[in-house]
Simulated scan of single mutants.
Amino acid sequence: MAMSHKAKKRWALVILLVGLPAYIAVSVSVLNWLYPDPDARAPIWVELGIYIGLGVLWVFPLKFVFKGIGQDDPDA
């Protein structure tokens, strides 16, 4: 069953306002768990790569929600 345009907009807003900050907090927590000692951290380019990878990774499972959000309602 396809979601309506209005439902997609609402879910996109919920995902961006609630889900994305929670995902960021979990990502930072996991990286801090992997490298608990500040002196034994991974090189900055490795951490940057992990953060960029995690920043892109969340989009793929939620792509269907954000597809077509910026366009006019096709049912109107």
Rank of each mutant, 00 (worst) to 15 (best):
W11A: 08
A25C: 14
W33I: 10
H5R: 09
L17A: 14
V56H: 08
G53W: 13
F64D: 09
F64R: 07
A7G: 04
P74Y: 07
A12F: 13
R10V: 00
E47L: 15
V26M: 15
R41M: 05
A76I: 08
Q71M: 02
S4P: 03
A25T: 00
V65A: 00
V14I: 11
G70W: 13
L17Q: 13
Y23L: 07
A42G: 02
A25F: 09
R41E: 08
V59F: 09
R41D: 03
V46Q: 13
L48P: 00
P21S: 01
D39H: 04
W45P: 00
L17G: 04
V14E: 08
G19L: 07
L20T: 08
V30W: 12
V65S: 02
S29M: 09
V56F: 15
V65I: 15
W58V: 14
G53R: 08
I50R: 03
V28G: 03
L57S: 04
G19Q: 00
L20W: 11
D75M: 11
M1G: 01
I24K: 05
A40E: 14
V46T: 13
G70Q: 13
V59D: 01
L34C: 07
S4W: 02
I15F: 12
P61C: 07
A7H: 08
S29C: 11
D75W: 12
W58P: 01
L62I: 14
L31F: 12
S29E: 12
I44E: 15
L48T: 04
A40H: 15
W11F: 11
V30Y: 11
A2I: 04
A42E: 06
M3A: 11
